[in-house]
């Protein structure tokens, strides 16, 4: 019996993907949790940007929305939203975009728009928000999400944001996008990285206690595994302490 949950394992691993030199465009939810944990542990100099216009923000509690007052009050500066998307994101000043997804395919294309047909959806999801341009304008993209056959799918119902398209060099050749695209997927079971040639997500480390069978059972495409399969390093006590304190402060703040 481990003394941390799969969700904590996921957030700590996602946080470790960021370094103090990164300028990170942060999605709400799991990405925001991971990015702030990184800032509170090994990467205090990490620059966090939220699409509400807050640059270099250092929230003490996790924001419920992308535009909570906490983000503005603790930011270096707050710019208008058109400037955020034009100068800062489109201008190529962001090293990492950190996104979540409702549905993801093996090439890192993301759906957060609809389940079913667009014109007669079974489920209308919130939509793309900033993601379509975050996906193409940031230096690279990290994705954090819980994995299941419903979320990691063979075929997306709708492509909200571009990953590696149909794989290989499709991203650059068909769409003229020169940024790196999805380079890491962190789930509650494992870490996946794109195969250098095909760009299909390949498991590169399994979280402690997780088996290949578990990953296969919770992946909607045929799961691929790297030749060498190290174990993802378990969370350190200080990381767990910081994460739990952050979540406790957040819960208290939002009532």
């Amino acid at each position: 019996m481990s003394d941390y949950t799969p969700n904590e394992m996921m957030s700590v691993t996602a946080a470790r993907a960021l370094s103090g030199n990164d300028v990170c465009f942060v999605g709400i939810g799991l990405p925001s949790e991971a990015a702030n944990l990184a800032r509170l542990t090994h990467a205090p100099d990490l620059t966090l940007i939220y699409e509400s216009g807050t640059l270099g923000t250092q929230p003490k509690v996790l924001p419920l929305s992308i535009g909570d007052g906490e983000l503005c009050e603790t930011a270096l500066t707050t710019v208008p939203v058109p400037e955020m998307f034009r100068y800062w994101l489109q201008g190529g000043r962001v090293t990492v975009g950190f996104l979540g997804a409702a549905q993801l395919d093996c090439f890192g294309n993301i759906n957060t728009t609809v389940i079913g047909d667009y014109d007669a959806p079974k489920v209308r999801l919130p939509g793309g928000g900033g993601a379509p341009e975050i996906a193409i304008s940031c230096g690279e993209i990290f994705i954090v999400m819980r994995q299941s056959k419903r979320s990691l799918v063979e075929r997306l119902d709708f492509v909200t944001s571009l990953g590696h398209g149909m794989g290989g060099n499709d991203r650059a050749e068909r769409f003229g996008v020169t940024t790196k695209g999805p380079s890491r997927l962190i789930t509650d079971l494992c870490v996946m990285e794109p195969d250098p040639e095909t760009k299909a997500f390949t498991v590169t480390s399994l979280h402690p206690g997780v088996t290949r069978e578990q990953v296969i059972e919770n992946t909607g495409w045929e799961a691929l595994f790297a030749d060498e399969m190290p174990e993802t390093p378990a969370p350190l006590a200080k990381e767990l302490k910081a994460l739990r304190a952050l979540k406790k402060r957040t819960e208290k703040a939002h009532g």
Partner: peptide, 9 residues
């Protein structure tokens, strides 16, 4: 603007 590349919208 530079956007919507590869996006189904």
């Amino acid at each position: 603007f530079r956007g919507y590349r590869g996006a189904e919208l």
